[in-house]
């Protein structure tokens, strides 16, 4: 059964992704990105979003691939909110908002090209796992 999804379509590197609009709180251009030493590449840094600390994720690295370019001030980002966690995804380009058919996890854009549909809850869980592994590792004397 195909289901209609309201998504925002964006590009990171050569990959086109989609994420459901209901998880997207804002589309912003990032303020100054503070690097977080000792964090895994999946965490691109932290930003100030209206006075709260916003972690910026590198989607490629979170999904187990090579990390993209470091997040910098002025980069575009999607601010997602899921299960009480707020985080941002650094993106190269926000393409458009669309209603697309999803069928068994596969989703294609209007031109028939396949998109990767991201589930923010899964992304957050993966990121948390990566960060936990690094964060609680024994310090090297």
């Amino acid at each position: 059964m195909a289901e209609l999804r309201n998504v925002i379509v964006f590009t990171i590197g050569a990959v086109r992704y989609a994420v459901e609009l209901r998880w997207v709180r804002e589309v912003v251009s990032l303020g100054f990105v503070t690097a977080v030493p000792t964090a895994p590449p999946a965490l691109g840094g932290v930003c100030n979003l209206h006075g709260t600390i916003l972690p910026v994720l590198d989607v490629g690295a979170v999904l187990g691939g090579p990390p993209g370019p470091p997040a910098r001030q002025g980069d575009g980002a999607l601010v997602l909110e899921t299960e009480g966690v707020i985080c941002a995804l650094r993106v190269d380009q926000v393409d458009h908002v669309a209603s697309l058919h999803e069928s068994g996890g596969a989703i294609v854009d209007a031109g028939g090209k396949p998109l990767t549909l991201l589930d923010p809850a899964v992304l957050v869980r993966l990121a948390l796992e990566l960060i936990t592994t690094v964060g609680t590792a024994e310090p090297v004397p």
Binding site: I53, G84, V85, V124, A127, I131
Partner: peptide
Amino acid sequence: LGPLLAPLTL
């Protein structure tokens, strides 16, 4: 720091 960064105990 929020839940996502909490494991970074440093």
